[in-house]
Design a protein around this nucleic acid. Sequence first.
DNA 1: CTAATAATTAGTACCTAGTCATAAAGACAG
DNA 2: CTGTCTTTATGACTAGGTACTAATTATTAG
Lengths: 193, 193
Amino acid sequence: MSNKRRVSKKERQEKLKEMIKEDPFQNDEELASVFGVSIQTLRLDRMELGIPELRERFRNVAQGNYEKVRSMVGAEIVGELIDLTLGKQGISILETDEAMTFKKTNIVRGHHIFSQAESLAMAVIDADVALTGVANIKYLKPIYLGDKLVAKAELVRIRGNKHFVHVKISVNQKQVFRGKFIFVSLSMDVDEE
Amino acid sequence: MSNKRRVSKKERQEKLKEMIKEDPFQNDEELASVFGVSIQTLRLDRMELGIPELRERFRNVAQGNYEKVRSMVGAEIVGELIDLTLGKQGISILETDEAMTFKKTNIVRGHHIFSQAESLAMAVIDADVALTGVANIKYLKPIYLGDKLVAKAELVRIRGNKHFVHVKISVNQKQVFRGKFIFVSLSMDVDEE
DNA sequence: CTAATAATTAGTACCTAGTCATAAAGACAG
DNA sequence: CTGTCTTTATGACTAGGTACTAATTATTAG
């Protein structure tokens, strides 16, 4: 009789899941009013779906992203450094996740690979301050979501304040990237080019 | 009587500011016990310093970084796209902030510049899926915190499934970076060279 | 139609991590 | 001893819940 009879419980819960995925920062009252149900019903739904309360969602997003931003932007090195001989060579590992890929194809964005290579190359150089001068790089194969990137960097030559580092990245022993980096340390003499 | 007989108010507040900057996810009780003062004292300190309550700090970090992660990692393009002619050219602007720099020198990490260039180059290509093939890049000058990077990308040639894009980045009309990118669209034929 | 079952709503006590306001105690300086 | 600064205590209130019980309303089976 009444047109108030809204969508089914199942349908509502499906939508709720999606909504919270899209925007996790709404409280029960707001969510309840969206569906035109009581707060209690919405809380029941959340329970059944195992969705935590707003404040916990805040905590999760805050702490998760804090980590992410710290390790991605703030970090001196992209990936996990597992071996390093200053002035000689270094190895780092980067686990790829869905945030690094194109949603359509699951291919990892090039700049993540570049970032791993550049930052490792930089770590190898035994100089306080260094700056990427020139990089000649080549992506040999596409890299997919979940691939574990193993980067090996080797300092091959130093000429004046120029440091030449080669980096190779492989997935399952197969090489997927190579890059030649030249870093110019600008300690005091920013002379010749 | 306690040898914990504390430091001055000023000193304590200085430390508090630092602590919250380092790890914003501690509540008043935990913070108070660190300094050996009562919760009320700590709250007074927070008030005087204008530091918001824990839950608001969560909110700020969550929402701030949500944006950041979305626009930095998830984004199809690094920087703000301000002009684009598919298959021809594009312009993007990237404002540099302290998260992108080395703390010691205030120099922007190379991979951010690379990311802006690569993603803009990619956006210009009128193909559903593209993958960085080869990039020959050169950093001409160090870029400092606060510099506004203006990137201009131009599609210069298409040969088969290879797309050649040149990108120039400038700060205040002075060029700081150039890069030549070759993208291989892998629509169906994943032929390599 | 009536009973059984499911879904929804209402209401209570309790929790955390605070807020604001007021009061009182402790330290020390002159 | 008084005055001020600092610290601590106390009580009342808040948002956004949890956990639970109870009642009401809808839907379905027989």
